[in-house]
Write a protein that binds this DNA or RNA. Structure first.
Length: 502
RNA sequence: GGUCCGUUCGUCUAGGGGUUAGGACACGUCCCUUUCACGGAUGAAACACGGGUUCGAUUCCCGUACGGACUACCA
């Protein structure tokens, strides 16, 4: 297989893109970049009933936000246009007809109701109904019915589907990049519908036809597709095409308990499972998005990349380029990975700290003079997980305290502290150089002259100024508040504290 | 139920016939710091179970258990 690598991400526009889908897209992207191949986006909208307006644009926007946009496909165009399956409708019928002609598929007239009845019947007998070599002879299809009957049904425009005639005996095997050899007996597969009665192909047919036509070399998709992979192999064989290399990715599991990660888990856990915020067009319900929650694209990507893949080194922080460089299909794990918000937050923090403070200032503190904003960002950057916390922190910082830490007050407020604050109230206004060093010097000198230890006063000073017992560097904070504001706050505290404590 | 897939610290994982089973998140302790955060150090913490194969198995094989996915004219 020395041909050029072509991979595709093929979501269906049935709602917001799930974060597991984003990871699938990422792995496809990484593999394409790594191998110098092409990353294609194909929209699989063959289910007319589940179509959700806006979902396709959402997919495009999400990939763009993360910087993993397709090279070819919807939103990028390319030699195999169109890339929306609904617009390729006519194509699939030809291939289904080909199978029909060659006796590898057949027409089935069974209605939903009839099939449902079969299922309940089998269920009552404790087994599961399968449309296969054993049962098809007794059902309403072109294999069981006479030619005249079939023609009559066709003439009366009875709805029908086209089903694949799965051989009664045989074994399908393929070598998955993640799981190695997988084999399955055709007897356990059923005659899957290829063409639906509405004239649309099912996923199975459309995906195989398109992957072949679009010269896809590697199909990298979620593990939920593993059970139908043998069917797809069988289709490739039926057409006489070479099947692409498959790689079935481990599932993303819910953080608590077991099972596939769902939107419900996200709501419960208070974290997003969608890359961007999504408003359901029907219910207007809003779902959280990584973007809006304050996750940086690079952090999101890094976090996602490590859910099911690992470079084998001890490096944890990887830029997109580094991920591309380190990525390989062989290092993808087999077992499902639980989604851990803590880890996601940690990644975000790491990337946030590496961010340019001026840029953050511009985006998150747009109303402040650039110089101040930058100083604030530097003061608070170590203490936030998400950038939007910066705005909140700065807002609180610039407000006069409306409450004072009671615990600190109760334990640290005494005559010595009071005297210390009085000393500072008197000496700080004389500070000639109002910057962190100058302030520190002034405080040192004043307290030393008064014979008071720093430790006895400093936390009270912090409470007096901010109301809080803990916070960022006090000297820099004071510099940012400015001399007048600091004095006001100290004097206010001096008049309030005695009352609060008594 | 059937088919398929999986199982190393709580979580993400490295490793792979002989290791003190390594790292990261979270957690504990200590250091740094006037405080908190950051950072640094350190601790507790894992090979699901049972059989083989082997001088030796967490690693290979087979079972069992547990978990998951799929089982639609959905993808």
């Amino acid at each position: 297989m020395s041909q050029k690598v072509r991979v595709r991400f093929a979501p269906s526009p049935t709602g917001p893109l799930h974060i597991g889908g984003v990871r699938t897209a990422l792995y496809n992207y990484l593999f394409a970049r790594k191998t110098g191949g092409t990353f294609i986006l194909r929209i699989e909208d063959t289910d007319q009933a589940r179509f959700v307006p806006g979902a396709e644009q959402y997919i495009l926007d999400s990939l763009a936000w993360l910087g993993i946009s397709p090279d070819e496909g919807v939103g990028a165009d390319g030699p195999h246009s169109p890339y929306r399956q609904s617009e390729r409708k006519a194509l699939y019928k030809q291939y289904a007809d080909q199978l029909l002609r060659e006796g590898k598929a057949y027409i089935a007239f069974d209605s939903f109701e009839e099939l449902e009845a079969m299922r309940t019947l089998y269920e009552s007998k404790g087994s599961a109904f399968q449309y296969n070599a054993l049962t098809r002879v007794k059902l309403r299809n072109s294999l069981a019915l006479s030619k005249a009957e079939v023609d009559a049904l066709l003439a009366s425009e009875t709805p029908y589907v086209i089903r694949l005639k799965v051989p009664a005996k045989g074994e399908i095997r393929f070598q998955d990049s993640v799981r190695d050899w997988v084999h399955v007996h055709t007897s356990s597969m059923d005659d899957k519908v290829l063409m639906k009665s509405d004239g649309m192909p099912t996923y199975h047919l459309a995906n195989v036809v398109d992957d072949h036509i679009m010269e896809i070399t590697h199909v990298i998709r979620g593990e939920e597709w593993l059970p139908s992979a043998p069917l797809h192999i069988l289709l490739y064989q039926s057409f006489g095409w070479q099947a692409p290399q498959f790689a079935h990715l481990p599932l993303l599991l819910k953080p608590e308990g077991n099972g596939k990660l769902s939107k419900r888990d996200a709501d419960l856990g208070g974290f997003p499972v969608f890359p961007m915020e999504w408003t359901d067009p029907q219910s207007s319900v809003i779902s959280k998005g990584f973007k809006q929650e304050g996750y940086l694209p690079a952090a999101t990507l890094n976090f996602l990349a490590f859910l099911g893949w690992n470079p084998g080194t001890e490096q944890e922080l990887f830029s997109l380029d580094e991920l591309v460089d380190a990525f390989s299909l062989e290092r993808i794990n087999k077992a499902g990975a639980k989604f851990d918000v803590n880890k996601a937050k940690w990644f975000n923090q790491q990337y946030l700290k590496q961010s340019d403070s001026k840029e953050l200032a511009q985006v998150y503190l747009p109303n402040l003079p650039a110089k101040d904003a930058d100083a604030f960002v530097q003061l608070f950057l170590d203490r936030v997980t998400f950038p939007q916390e910066l705005g909140q922190l700065v807002h609180e910082f610039s407000q006069k305290p409306h409450a004072y830490d009671e615990v600190v007050l109760a334990t640290k407020w005494n005559l010595e502290a009071q005297k210390g604050l009085q000393v500072l109230a008197a000496s700080l206004p004389t500070c000639s150089t109002w910057d962190a060093d100058g302030i520190k010097h002034t405080i040192h000198v004043a307290l030393e002259e008064a014979g008071i230890k720093m430790g006895k006063v400093m936390q009270m000073l912090r409470v007096a100024l901010s109301g809080n017992g803990a916070g960022p560097d006090l000297m820099i904070s004071m510099q940012l508040w400015g001399k007048d504001e600091v004095n006001e706050r100290i004097n206010a505290a001096l008049s309030v504290f005695p009352k609060l404590v008594s």
